[in-house]
């Protein structure tokens, strides 16, 4: 079949009819995989509960103990996995496009460091012990620190990706040190941060997620809104400007989007590594450099990775569990190594 070229072949936004269909089919498959994992996440746990009980728990609820386990534990962690995974995946794609750095992840702008430090302060100095209490500290910390990094990384000519990354690394190092000092002098903070830093989607009630959802919604909308300009910027700033892209506005909007997404995700689940780093790689490997497709695939693949890792963490050490942040690292590292060795996959 002859492909119909709609735009210049060298443009990341280039779309062909056959390529488009292939990507669409891939997207449908990714959606089916995600749906299957959502179902599996509710069905599989550290105790054996029959599908019939799961069905009743969801659609004909009673006060049966097993049904409580489904509604109170498995359902919330599945929803949290879906939401947090989506946010981390798109945030990762944004930061990689923005910095043109295939090894960038949301943490590079200080999101994780800001959230961690704020939680340490909340636990260590204010005596807040539960996640309901320090959720907003984490979110606020992530936002404030990212804005600080944005300011530090800005020059008279606008934001420089390299400067922002350097500022993010520096601020992250300073806050990491200050947080460690606080943890070492406060056993309560040390204990709380040990769990929080592992990254987990367990015991996060849905009440915790709903208030963050509007921020995620805005983040996702902004991400897709800047995907076109980011495609142009991938060709270089001068070419992007020639195509009418406003560099400063695009960068600021992209940073706001990734801060809302990554900050919210980190506030809910703690720092979960590799999802934001790996999924955009996989997406790029499947669909090429077009940011719209990368974002669309990341929306589906990232929660799939997170849910698959969480399910794996529930069954490999039965009756105990491994926090999802540790599993994503175990699963993500080898896959990422394989991907970065694939030149085409890693290039931006």
């Amino acid at each position: 079949m002859t492909a119909l070229t709609l735009r210049r072949p060298s443009d990341p936004g280039t779309v062909t009819v056959s390529g488009s269909r292939r990507r669409l089919i891939g997207l449908v498959i990714a959606l089916i995989v995600l749906l299957a994992l959502l179902v599996a996440s509710v069905l599989i746990g550290s105790t054996a509960i029959s599908p019939a009980v799961v069905w009743k728990a969801l659609f004909h609820p009673t006060d049966d103990i097993d049904q409580f386990a489904i509604r109170d534990f498995r359902l919330p962690r599945t929803v949290v996995g879906l939401v947090v995974g989506t946010a981390l995946g798109v945030a990762g794609a944004l930061i990689q496009a923005l910095t043109r750095n295939p090894l960038a992840d949301p943490g590079i702008l200080g999101v994780n460091a800001g959230a961690s430090f704020a939680v340490t302060v909340a636990v260590g100095l204010l005596g807040i012990r539960n996640i309901q209490g320090y959720l907003w500290f984490a979110f606020g910390g992530a936002l404030i620190v990212t804005l600080m990094v944005l300011a530090l990384g800005s020059t008279r000519r606008g934001q420089s990706p390299v400067m922002m990354v350097l500022a993010g690394v520096c601020v992250g190092a300073v806050l990491g040190g200050a947080g460690s000092a606080l943890e070492l002098t406060n056993p309560d903070a040390f204990d709380a941060m040990r769990s929080w830093n592992a990254g987990s989607i367990v015991d996060r009630p849905l009440d915790l997620v709903w208030p963050i959802l509007p921020f995620f919604g805005v983040g996702l909308l902004l991400a897709f809104a800047v995907s076109g300009p980011l495609n142009a910027m991938a060709l270089g700033d001068e070419l992007a400007v020639a195509q009418g892209v406003q560099l400063v506005r695009t960068r600021v909007l992209a940073i706001i989007a990734l801060t809302l997404l990554a900050g919210g995700a980190t506030a809910i689940a703690g720092p979960i590594g590799f999802v934001g780093l790996m999924v955009p790689h996989v997406a790029r490997w499947i669909v090429g450099p077009n940011q719209r497709w990368i974002f669309a695939y990341s929306v589906l693949l990232a929660p799939s990775l997170l849910l698959a890792s969480d399910i794996l963490g529930r069954v490999v050490m039965r009756p105990g569990e491994i926090p999802v942040g540790i599993v994503t690292a175990f699963v993500g590292a080898p896959v990422l190594i394989a991907l970065v060795r694939h030149k085409k996959a890693s290039g931006l």
Binding site: S46, T47, I65, D66, A69, D72, P319, G320
Partner: peptide, 13 residues
């Protein structure tokens, strides 16, 4: 030494 998920509470019967 083994942490159990809350889901395991159902087995205490």
């Amino acid at each position: 030494y083994t942490s159990l998920p809350f889901e395991q509470l159902t087995k205490l019967s």
